[in-house]
Each structure stands twice: as structure tokens, then as C-alpha cells.
Simulated assay, not measured.
Amino acid sequence: MSRYRPLDGLLLLDKPQGLSSNQALQQVRRLFRAEKAGHTGSLDPLATGLLPVCFGEATKIAGLLLGSRKAYETIARLGVTTDTDDADGQPLRERPVPTLDEATFEAALAPLRGRIAQRAPIYSALKQGGEALYARARRGEAVEAPVRKVEVFRLEVLERTAEAVRLHVECGSGTYVRSLVRDLGEALGCGAHVAMLRRLWVEPFRAPRMYTLEELAACAAQGEAALDACLLPLEDGLAGFPQVRLDAEGARRLGQGQRLRAPAGTTEGMAAAYGPDGRCLGLVEIAAGRLAPQRLFRWAAG
């Protein structure tokens, strides 16, 4: 029996603390014996929570999930900055935490909401000159992290003590919670770093049923049927897209890569095209009354 097998679908993994996203992915891939797998947006080793894993044809929509809105809960430890902006790094500076009232906190949080310019952490996977920043930082090289436009939809205090604050964050693609916490600490005048980070959801999975590695291992011990029952169909990852229904002839022509007349009443933009059997054939672009294939799944060819 082949070690790996063709497998299509989505797994909502509850990534444990201490593993990189790639290490977690490889463990999952071995459990499922999947020929092809990828994840949608890295979580730091310190972080836990939702890491959507795409198997087989679902890897074609991984980039869409990567760019989706996300939510996190984090605990910011006040008074200490680190070189990685989280608890896994080396302390750089310690400062006393002043007495902070609600108005002071709100004044510090307000500039971090909305469309903002954010400097990424030095220890990040962003690349300069083809190499990740963290690799250069670990060699002791001087690193100038880039400033990028990101969007923060919500940034709210859930609970706070004299030396820590628990925050709820909802943000768009490319936002670093570590940078938000770092910048909040500087605005408060005492510095801060991430002590805990958990990803709560990624659109369109707003109320995800996540599986831990331990749960998946227990399912694997029962057999592949029990393990595969943990998967979602890749169509679930396209829930946020408008749907276009095609008849058998339209589905056949789309599978051949042909442009079609868009069904009446469809709006322009990206949409998910479905065949008469209810299965998603792939993503299409609708413009000027025409429907053009963009990213089709292998079964679209029939």
C-alpha cells in the first residue's frame, strides 16, 4: 500500500503551542497520509488556535483563506520588550508600568485601529533579498523591517491587571499582533510583548470546530474513515463567494477552459461555479456578461 494517498478537503487544526505551522502541517499530513497539503497563514510557535490545512485540490484556495479576516485573543505583558516582540524572545528593556486608567488605554489603542501603517517584527517570515528576516536577525545582522499598510477592524480590552492586558483583535491579512502589542506598549510608555496568542477564527470559519493533534491521532487509531470524517469539503472554504449554477453543457465547456455567457442576474467579480451535481468546479471571473475560468479543480475537466 502506498504511503501517501490522494485526498481533497479542509481540516481546521487547533495548532498547539511550541510547534511551527510547518511542523504542525507535517504531522497532520503524515496522519492523513495525504499526497499534497498546505496551510493558510503561519502562526508563531508560541501561538495556538485555528490553522486551516488544505489537502489536495483545496490547496488551490489556500491563498484566498490566507487573505481573509481573522480574529485573535492575546495577552500583552506590560513593562518588558523583547527582540521577537513575544515571550519566546530575549528581553531587551524593562520599564516600570505606570498607573493606567481607561482613558489612557483608549488613547493608546485608537491609533492602532483602522487602516494603519505597521512595522513588521524583525523576527518574521517576511523576505528581503529572497531571505526571511528572522534568518538574518538570528545571524546578528542589522535588519530594517518593512512598514506595510494593514487593517485592524477591532482592538478591544477584555481584561487588564497592573502588568498585563487581554485583548481581542480582528484584523486583515498581513497584520502582526506582535507589532500591535509592541506599539501599544510604546504608546503607554512602558513597552510590552505578547505573552499568549490564540487565533479564534478565520473567515469563512467564524465558529470553527477545531481538532487537536491528540484528537486526530485518536481518530487515526480507529481507521481512515474516522480520520476523514474530520475533514470539511473544500466548498466550505468558498462560502463567502457568490455562487453561479451551470447546467451540464455549461459545466462541460467551463471544464474545457471556455468562456461562457454569464447567467442572467449575476454580478461582476469572482464567483464559485457549481455543476448540476452541486459540486464546485472552481472559481470564475464575471465581467461584461461573460464568465471566464480562473482556478478550476481537476474534476471540472470531467
Rank of each mutant, 00 (worst) to 15 (best):
T74I: 12
G38W: 01
V28M: 10
A229F: 05
D88R: 14
A120S: 13
E163K: 10
W201C: 10
T74K: 11
E144A: 08
G189E: 11
A273E: 14
L227V: 09
T175L: 11
V143I: 11
R93A: 11
L291A: 00
D183R: 05
D86T: 05
Q128Y: 10
E186M: 10
R30D: 09
D101Q: 02
L10F: 04
L92Q: 13
I116S: 06
V177G: 08
G237Y: 03
H39Y: 02
L126M: 15
A34I: 02
L227F: 07
R198C: 02
G114Y: 06
L64K: 03
V194P: 12
T175S: 11
L11F: 09
L281K: 00
I61C: 04
L51S: 07
A207R: 15
P111H: 11
L188N: 05
A108Q: 11
Q118W: 10
G265Y: 00
T267V: 08
I122V: 15
A107F: 12
P263L: 13
R290Q: 10
L200R: 10
A107M: 14
Q118M: 13
F55A: 11
P263G: 02
T81H: 03
L51W: 00
R154P: 00
R259C: 08
Q294R: 15
G129P: 15
E163F: 00
F32H: 10
P204Y: 01
Y72D: 01
E163I: 00
P146N: 08
D83W: 00
A37I: 01
T84G: 07
A218F: 13
T84Y: 12
V194I: 02
D183G: 14
R290Y: 12
R206T: 11
A287E: 13
A225S: 08
K70E: 09
R209G: 13
L13M: 04
P276C: 01
A145D: 13
E285T: 06
D236L: 01
R148V: 04
A262G: 07
M1R: 06
G63I: 01
L109C: 06
T212W: 03
R139H: 12
T267S: 14
Q26V: 06
L50S: 05
P111G: 12
A164V: 02
T99R: 00
Q128W: 07
I61K: 02
A125D: 05
P208D: 04
R5L: 11
R182Q: 08
K149Q: 15
A107S: 06
E214V: 03
E214C: 07
A288L: 02
F205I: 03
K60D: 14
A262C: 03
H193K: 05
V202Q: 10
V80Y: 02
R166G: 06
A195G: 12
L92M: 06
L238F: 07
I75F: 01
R136L: 11
A117M: 14
P293Y: 04
G250M: 07
T99G: 08
G191F: 04
R95M: 12
P263R: 10
T212Q: 09
D247S: 04
